[in-house]
Every structure is written in C-alpha cells, then in structure tokens.
Write a protein that binds this DNA or RNA. Structure first.
Length: 569
RNA sequence: CGGGGCGUGGCGCAGUCUGGUAGCGCACACGGUUCGGGACCGUGGAGCCGGAGGUUCAAAUCCUCUCGCCCCGACCA
C-alpha cells in the first residue's frame, strides 16, 4: 500500500484536550479523531489495528468452538424489563421510542438478547453446551468518558455467552475462556494479569478481570509479591501490618478541637495505627458504627455487602445520635450495632471518648466493647497478603477483558430452559465474557511507546514493514523501493497468516519528515533506502522498538529483510 | 451529579485584568533554493473570537444566560 493512497493525518502538535499517552499518540499519529465526548472515528490505520485484533479474537474463539453471530444493537424494552435491568440501570442506558411509541434501548451488553435466543431455540441437553459470540458495537451513556478511546460511550466489544447444562459445564466454558483470553492478550503483546473481581450488577458467583498494568488505567489491582494472589482493589482483602501495642490503662485525654485521627495523632505525637477511627453510617435499618484502625480507610463496597446500602452520617446526624460532636465519638459505651475491622481485634487503642474535646486512651476492643469483625478496609501498599502474609503492592491497570459466571440470573427470568436426560426441565447455566477491542489497542500503546511515538507489536501493527525511499527524485531509489514493496507483498507472513502488509512512503517530502512519521506511526520494521547507502550497494533496516539498524547488501534483500522481521520482538 | 479548567483561522497559542474593530508559530496554496531526522526565502488564502441576549458611541475584552470540550471526584452491567 502506498502512503499517498492512505489517509494518515499526522499532527505536529497534539490537540490540547488529550491527556493520556495513548490518546495523544493515536491523535498525533493520525489513527483517530474525536467526534464528540466519548465518540471516536477510527481512521484507516487504527481500523487496520482493530481488524488484526478481531482476527486474533476470531481465531481464539474458534479454537474453543465458539460460534460467531451478530445481534441487533437496537433492542425492544420488554426483554430488559423481564430481567429487571430496564429499571435497575439508570442513565447509563440509551433509551428511545420507535414510531409507534414502543420503548426501545441501545444495547450496552447482550445477556438478555442472547438468552432470549437460547430460550427460543434450545430444547434439549443434546443441544448444549453452546458458546455464541459477536464482535459488535455497544452503547453506554457513560457518566464521564475519558482518556481518549479508553472509556467511550460507543465501543466495539467481543462478547461471548456460554450455555451449559450444569455448573460443571459452566466451569469448563469459563476456563476455556480464561485460557483463550490468555492467548489473545499474549498474542496482542500485552502485559496483563488475571485478577479476582467483583461481579457487580452482572450478578453471579464469580468473576475475573484481565488487567493491563498502566498508569493510565482507571482500576487498581492488589498484587502479592510472593504468591499468586491478585485482586481488584474493589474486593481485595489484606492484612494491615501488625504493630506493637503500648500497655495503656484506660484514661481520658484532653484533645481540644482535635477531631480527625490526623489532628489527634499529631497533637499527642502518637502514630495513627494506635487509633480507632469511628464512622457513623446510616442504613435503611438504622445506624451502624464502623471502626477502622487509624491508618485505614473504609471500603464502602465491602461494607455495603455486609449492611446493604448506606451513607456516611453528616455532622448533625452524629450530634443527634450520639449527643456528642463529630470527631469525639467512639465505641465505648455504645449500645448500637458495631462493625469493626478485623485488624482491631488485638491491641490497645485511642478512641473518641463520646465527650466534647476528649479522647480515651487504653481501649481494648476484646474487653471494652462488642463488635462484629469483618475486613472493611481498603487494601493499600505495604499491607500483607491474605494468603501468604507477604507484602502487597498496588498497581494501576486498564481493564481489557472480563469473564463472569452468571449462573441462572438470566436464564430463569427469560425461561431459557432445556430438558435434561431424565426429561426434567432445567434452566441453562450461563457465563458471559467480554473484551474491548479499542482498549486492547490503547493498552498496547500505553505499554509500548517512546518519546518518538507508538511501537506496535508485530501481531497487531497496521502494517508489518514500512519502506522509506528518501530521495523520490532518484530513479534507482524508486525502482528499488517499488520492487521491494511488490516482492515483499508477495511473501507469506506466518505471524499474521496472510501476506506481508507493506507500506511504501511514496510522498515527495524531505527525509526528516518520513523518519519522524515512521517513528510516530510505529510500524515494527523500517526499510530505509537512501542514495548514500545505495552507493555502497546496501540499504538499511531499522527496528522501531530498539532502533537497531542493519545494513543489508542488495543481494538477497527480501530474504534478509524477512529474517530480520521474524527476529524482531 | 459535585469541584476545577478551557473555548480566538486546521493545530498550538497571545490578546481579555485596563473596551477602540484580531495577531504569532506550525499547517495549507503558488514560485524559487534545498533534500539522511519535522528546511529556507518570497507571495497568498483562510477566523462574523462557541452561541444568544444585554451594557456602551464602540465588545474577543464588561454583565447575564446557554452550549461544548478536558481534568479530579461520584458512578461504571
């Protein structure tokens, strides 16, 4: 393909709105353009990348006997009403009416529709298991689209759905997907982790996310440095580092106007780990006093799994419930429900005295109050692994894929039933599995770039090789470049399972421009044809990632280039 | 939804505080010189200053409303 026949609008200066590296580079290198907030146009280069990712997805889905289909994006409301998600999901769903006034929505995911299909068509255990998937557009009215194509309102997703006769079958389908996902992301050249995650509103018992570590990521994952414990911070458990406890006797301490743990700890010159942080929570059933160690923060998701929906009490709520100003409340003498973090079970602490301007020293949780013990804190750097007690670290990551065990959450309401061997009607056991294509591409850019631009992995690069004829007025240069382009394009590339995709930069521009643009758009191998080296009967081959340059004699050019291509990382 | 920032040729910005009728760099077009890391010289085209209303002899500039975009947070099936 010739550069002059492709639309590659590279920029010298990046539009001011771009912040994330992948956003900046994809704009600058002419891969994407923004239409509106969270809506992006994929230009020829990025579309080629997405197609290569699709090809990998198709191959790996095929390998686990998944069947590609495609479903409408426009859905009738009734199906979503049956499962209740029409009501549970709020502004995030795009809704509209058709000309007859019928309620419709745009698909943000396809559990309902896939299950509907299964319910209509599958009757017998003999027809199961099935895995159906599609690569198709999803629409979500995101509260805050951000970071270029990392979080958009419209995005292309590979979503698959498994239907099994029992839990064992689901386990099998789930593991098949986990393995396929490993292969897919490995082939795409990504660094990634598979982490335990929160099933959220998808429901179901078990879920994992595939996370590509990157500072641009929105998620945080907790990783054990020793064992294989890895989890999303949304559900991660951790052990707070233990401390030596002083042998304080129970004693009131005057702490005038010192309310927060930070203020009191500075005032008394005592480390926050020796404090009990008391938070009053309000649920539909009444008040709950949550207790954390002074160095911890409340994990609201963990808490709401224990007590359901709640909000943190305001100052006047605290005053009316405790008769003490906020900042001085504590568990001592408290008659209501107390939920305390497990790390408080041992030791002696300072807590609010339930008396204005006083705290109380020497509180021993096992003696002085009764609580339910739970892990309700947010894991943080330096905490210990819940499995092996070694150090945990926290990393930011991009969620590039997820897998959910759904069970019967959708099959029961939508009547996706089958007859088992004994003729008994049973609900199908389902799983659902997603991969965001643009996120894979963006994560690849986030993880593979340098100051000059993008560095694509061979498997998903828009082209395999770019030829840079430096002097477009030199006959020998042009002839050689053209011949190379044509010959290389005839050669089979086993990495992409098709012929080499070769980009020939045939623009009449100065060499510097070609070098800059080639580095920017990031094709793995550059072939530089300049008069200077032609005089010595050589050309240069440059690896984009390492910037190594190989000087190749004109004889057997194609074979040498192909060899370097295969040896390129 | 809460907090912050920004809207001026295609892109990056100055001008706004202190009103006087729009400028710089890049890009673009043409001519010439150049040609191994985003060339140089010359000429030229291109902006009703996000929109609406108001104040004023006069508004990019002041006031009110509104729309859009970005960032932080909440949310995220």
């Amino acid at each position: 393909m010739r550069y002059t026949q492709l639309f590659i609008p590279t920029l010298r200066e990046v539009p001011a709105e771009a912040e994330a590296i992948s956003h900046k580079l994809l704009l600058k290198a002419g891969y994407i353009r923004q239409l509106a907030s969270g809506l992006y146009i994929f230009l020829p280069l990025s579309w080629r990348v997405l197609n290569r990712i699709s090809k990998i997805l198709n191959e790996e889905m095929y390998a686990i006997n998944a069947q590609e289909i495609t479903m409408p994006i426009l859905h009738p409301a009734e199906i979503w009403q049956i499962t209740g998600r029409w009501y549970d999901i709020k502004e995030e769903m795009f809704r509209l009416k058709d000309r007859t006034g019928r309620d419709m929505c745009l698909g943000m995911t396809h559990e309902e529709i896939m299950t509907w299909l299964a319910s209509k068509e599958i009757r017998s255990y003999r027809e199961l298991p099935q895995i159906w998937y599609q690569i198709q557009t999803k629409l979500r009215d995101e509260a805050r689209p951000k970071s270029g194509i990392l979080r958009t309102r419209e995005f292309i997703m590979k979503d698959s759905y498994s239907f099994d006769i029992d839990e064992e079958g689901l386990e099998k389908s789930y593991n098949l997907h986990a393995k396929a996902y490993h292969k897919i992301f490995t082939r795409c050249g990504l660094k990634f982790y598979k982490v335990e995650s929160d099933p959220g509103m998808m429901g179901g018992a078990c879920a994992h996310e595939f996370m590509a570590p990157s500072p641009a990521g929105e998620d945080e994952i907790v990783i054990c440095e020793k064992c294989d414990y890895i989890a999303n911070i949304e559900i991660a458990r951790s052990i707070s580092p233990s401390v030596n406890h002083p042998s304080w006797e129970l004693e009131e301490v005057f702490t005038p106007q010192k309310r927060t743990v930070k203020e009191v700890s500075e005032f008394l010159s005592i480390n926050p780990v020796h404090f009990i942080k008391s938070l009053l929570l309000i649920t539909s059933e009444g008040y709950v006093l949550a207790l954390l160690r002074g160095d911890q923060d409340l994990h609201e998701k963990k808490m709401s799994k224990i007590i359901g929906q709640f909000r943190i009490a305001q100052k006047d709520d605290v005053l009316s419930h405790f008769n003490v100003e906020a900042g001085f409340i504590g568990p001592l003498g408290y008659k209501g429900k107390i939920i305390a973090d497990i790390s408080l079970k041992e030791g002696v602490y300072i807590a609010g005295a339930n008396k204005l301007n006083y705290h109380i020293k020497g509180v021993n949780p096992s003696i002085h109050f009764a609580a339910q013990w739970h892990d309700i804190h947010i894991a943080k750097d330096g905490d210990m692994c819940p499995h092996c007690s070694n150090k945990l670290k926290i990393e930011k990551a991009i969620e590039i894929g997820n897998i959910f065990k759904l069970g019967t959450k959708y099959s029961i309401p939508l009547n996706a039933l089958f007859l088992d061997k004994k003729g008994v009607e049973r609900p199908m056991i389902m799983g659902s599995y997603g991969i965001g294509l643009a996120r894979v591409a963006a994560a690849a850019v986030e993880q593979n770039h340098d100051e000059d631009g993008i560095i694509w992995t061979k498997t998903i690069a828009p082209f395999d090789i770019e030829i840079l004829p430096l002097n477009m007025n030199d006959k020998q240069t042009i002839e050689l470049a053209t011949a190379l382009h044509d010959n290389l394009s005839e050669i089979y590339n086993s990495i992409t399972d098709k012929n080499m995709d070769v980009l020939l930069d045939d623009r009449h521009v100065r060499p510097g421009v070609k070098f800059k643009d080639a580095d920017l758009i990031g094709i793995p191998l550059q072939i530089i044809i300049g008069e200077r080296s032609l005089k010595n009967n050589i050309i240069e081959v440059k690896r984009r990632r390492t910037k190594e340059i190989f000087k190749i004699p004109l004889k057997h050019l194609e074979a040498e280039i192909v060899k370097i291509y295969y040896d390129t990382e």
